[in-house]
Write a protein that binds this DNA or RNA. Structure first.
Lengths: 198, 198, 198, 198
DNA sequence: CATGAATGAGGCTTCATTCAT
DNA sequence: GATGAATGAAGCCTCATTCAT
């Protein structure tokens, strides 16, 4: 069922932790297919056999990483958004949280990106989860009249596309935190659109 | 210099064509790393050695595909946009062209996506080319007062993000042409934004 | 650093030993380039992958063999020479040791010979090591007045050339131990030269 | 019978010449096994198919080169030696001719060296031819009392060993003409030996 | 829990050689 | 004579996975 075999001793937990951080690093930096179990084990300081105590598969670690990354990110966003008064404010905070998150975990960002080719199922699952919440939040805001008449799912995918590509361009490629003016312009855009009223 | 060794006979051209379409199909469907040269050669109906007459590398075909796909797509968009009166109309046509293109060549869409992990250089090159044109077009429109005061590069990456994610959701995943209402909503969004004026 | 990955278990040591003797046999008999890893592994009774646990390269075994052969031979000669009273006696013993060594390990002789084309670096290293010792020994003998006024390095290469070619002709080609009269004539030659005094 | 298919037109002779010099260069510089027919053809400026008009085999060129090199070298030595008064003078001239020859054709020197592993037959043939002449010359000199009582064949292989190793050390490795003092010391050695009379 | 040697299928690539033009 | 595309066997090497200790 689960892709991970949870340890029963504290020593085991340490080992698992080492595997995960080695995998995260290499999958992100070199890519899933250019990373061997041996690579991961070397960095984790364990023997190849040990790996299979925790995961039955190479893809097991990958899935585990994607699932947990999804959870962590969603949790963090939900937490930060909680006290926002308006939906626009929520988007502001949500976008910022996302950009900060990938600035701190660029490898996780790249792992998600790879998921489409490594394991399409988990990739869809990831975006389905994110999308679902997003849609719900936007639909509510729409009912309050905060958001205009646009299919919330379309909007959700627009927002995800924007954050992903802007994050790619200014956070991942520049290896930096999101510049203030970029965040500002993005928010201006989603608020007012890009075209002058005549 | 170039990654392809151009043939000198018509038989050679046919062979090259067969390699390219086999590679496009498998790279898109199974992914670069799950496609072997043997797979490509079998489908192309050639011997393994023949492949290396045209490309020096497995990655050679991949690059060739990305570069040419980029060219084709840019050409098609440029052509269709040419006669647009306003920038908004141009975006409409551009978005539609993009969605139609990936509906017709879903494999090429997936090839680009993979490029980030297969060959980061070519991936950046691809988006740099697209982005450059985009920025230029938007900047001009801005000077005419058609587009509001937003850094054109930010806007360009927003638009690319939107088309990519919306395309992923409704074209690639649904294996369909873009639904009319989705395109409509996307355009409404980029025109007016998503938030109600107070 | 080292070209071999030393095993940590006794089973590992056995495997390494099997690889080495298979490689020595085939490299000598068929030549480096006519020997495949598969050949070596078959003879050693291991799977192809196992080879790469110990050596990272096909050339790795080759280098290892050359280096160790060099060491063994030098050690043996040094040992046998130790108690010689005169330099001439030392040469006698040294020549004999060399001829006996290659009679017993004809494959190693051929391995060295190949090194010039397989890996020039290691080939030079081999002769540099041998030559260095040789020169030192000859220079000392010269100071004692045992050896005439000839650049010791020239002499060293003359001696190495003689042993190699005579060894080739009467040991390797004849697949035999060096005939007594040949050894005798060689020694007479290096002692007195070949030309009559007038 | 013969390994070469001699051309009938002058254009053909030019092509053959181009093949030979390309092969000589690469076989010498990169080694027989690291040189492909394609390499040779590229350098010769011909198509792969053309190669097989002249030689039926890759090894064909190699043999041709060794045989002709042998002939040329023997001819040159014989010519230069002809007018020598004494055998010692003949050796002097012969050694010098050999060193000059390999200084000018280092690739040919390396080709011979390789022959032992590439084609043992031709290698033996080469040294048999050289040796035979050498033995004859030395035997005659012995009968005249110029050369001391040593098996001429042993002496011949000693001389060949000396020239080969000294040539390797000071001509091939140093990429230079033989230094005067080296030649001088070598001759002194073969004349008087290396050990002091008591 | 952990180890690390062993496996062997399979991937990428080379290259001597052929043959239709 | 010359061309150059095509062949396909074979070589080197990788790597996920197993298992005896």
């Amino acid at each position: 069922m689960s892709e991970v075999n949870l340890p029963k001793t504290s020593r085991g937990w340490e080992t698992l932790e080492k595997i995960l951080s080695a995998a995260e690093k290499y999958f992100g930096e070199k890519g899933y297919y250019n990373t061997s179990i041996t690579d991961i084990c070397s960095l984790a300081g364990i023997a190849p056999g040990t790996f299979y105590i925790y995961f039955s598969d190479k893809i097991g670690v990958f899935r585990y990483l994607v699932r947990n990354l999804g959870k962590d990110l969603r949790k963090e966003i939900a937490l930060n958004i909680k006290n926002c008064k308006t939906r626009l404010e929520a988007e502001h905070v949500g976008f910022k949280t996302f950009f900060d998150f990938i600035a701190e975990h660029p490898n996780l960002y790249k792992i998600i990106w790879q998921a489409q080719m490594v394991d399409e199922e988990i990739f869809k699952e990831y975006y389905a989860h994110i999308g679902e919440r997003y849609v719900k939040g936007l639909a509510e805001a729409q009912q309050k009249g905060e958001v205009t008449e646009i299919d919330p799912e379309v909007l959700a995918y627009c927002f995800m596309g924007i954050t992903n590509f802007v994050g790619l361009r200014w956070v991942i490629w520049e290896k930096a935190k999101i510049p203030e003016h970029v965040l500002h312009d993005v928010l201006k855009f989603i608020k007012e659109g890009a075209f002058a009223k005549d």
